[in-house]
Amino acid sequence: MSELNCPCGRGIYTHCCEPLHRGQRDAESAEQLMRSRYSAFAKHEIDYIVSTTASGQQSHLDIAAIRDWAMSNQWLKLEVIQHLPRLDKTHAQVEFKAHYQHVDQVHVHHETSNFVFINRQWYFLDPTTDQTVTMKQPCICGSGKKFKQCCARFL
């Protein structure tokens, strides 16, 4: 892949995902956020990966592991299988396959990710964070709703 091409497969990096990585614009959809996060792994933009995760989960991320995962792989291709833009008023879902090479072996990471739209921005809901969440506490996304009324069914 040319250095000019965006890792997400949607165009030239400087016009595609780089403006999102630099904070010059926000993702317009959950799919665009997911694509920009894939590109962030490929470009080692770890701060972007952290900042686009739901606010209540950011302090629970293993940033060293994220950095190691991003840097130890060669990111080959992103394949979006399905984008469900309206699971409800604020949630969306994207199914994708991330193709990458680790050492001499090619792998495919197949995932269905959930996203939440809060304060006019999309955020990734990370199901792997090591945190205890109760149904009656404020939601981890920062919506102000109780967890059980907001993101609970998506995590």
Rank of each mutant, 00 (worst) to 15 (best):
F96Y: 13
V80M: 13
D47V: 04
Y38F: 09
C141W: 01
T129G: 08
S143I: 01
G11D: 08
V133K: 10
I49D: 02
R86I: 00
A27D: 00
S29N: 03
A152F: 13
F124H: 04
L155F: 01
S2R: 14
R25A: 04
L20W: 08
G11R: 13
K145C: 05
S36E: 01
C8M: 12
K136R: 11
C139A: 10
A92S: 06
G11I: 01
D26M: 10
F115P: 06
L61R: 07
E111A: 04
P85T: 00
L155W: 02
S51N: 12
F115W: 10
W122S: 00
F41A: 01
C8F: 15
S59N: 15
E45G: 12
T53Q: 12
E95W: 09
Q149L: 09
W75G: 12
P19S: 15
I12A: 14
T112N: 02
H44T: 04
G11M: 09
E45Q: 05
A98R: 13
Q101I: 03
Q57K: 13
D62P: 10
F41V: 01
A40D: 00
A64W: 07
C16Q: 03
S39E: 01
D68Q: 07
T132F: 05
G23M: 02
I81Q: 12
I46W: 04
S72H: 06
R37D: 00
K136N: 11
R153I: 00
H83G: 02
C16R: 04
G142D: 06
H21Q: 04
L84M: 09
I66S: 15
F124W: 08
T53G: 15
D126G: 09
S29E: 01
H109Y: 13
D47E: 06
S72F: 13
L84N: 13
T128L: 05
K97I: 08
K43S: 08
R37F: 14
R120N: 05
C8T: 00
F154R: 10
D68W: 05
P127M: 07
A152H: 13
G23P: 14
E79M: 12
Y48N: 06
L84R: 13
D104L: 09
R153N: 11
R86V: 01
F117Y: 10
K136E: 03
H99K: 07
V80P: 11
R120A: 06
G142Q: 03
Y38M: 05
Q131E: 06
I63S: 10
V106P: 14
Y13G: 11
A92T: 00
Q24T: 00
S39P: 07
C8N: 08
K146G: 11
F147W: 04
Q149W: 02
A70F: 15
K43A: 03
E31Q: 06
A65F: 12
G9K: 05
I63M: 11
R22F: 06
G142W: 01
K146M: 06
D26N: 07
I46P: 11
R25S: 06
A152I: 00
I118G: 13
E79V: 13
T90G: 05
L155V: 00
Q105W: 14
M135D: 03
H107D: 01
E18N: 14
C141F: 01
C8V: 01
P7K: 12
S29W: 12
F115Y: 06
Y38S: 02
Q131L: 11
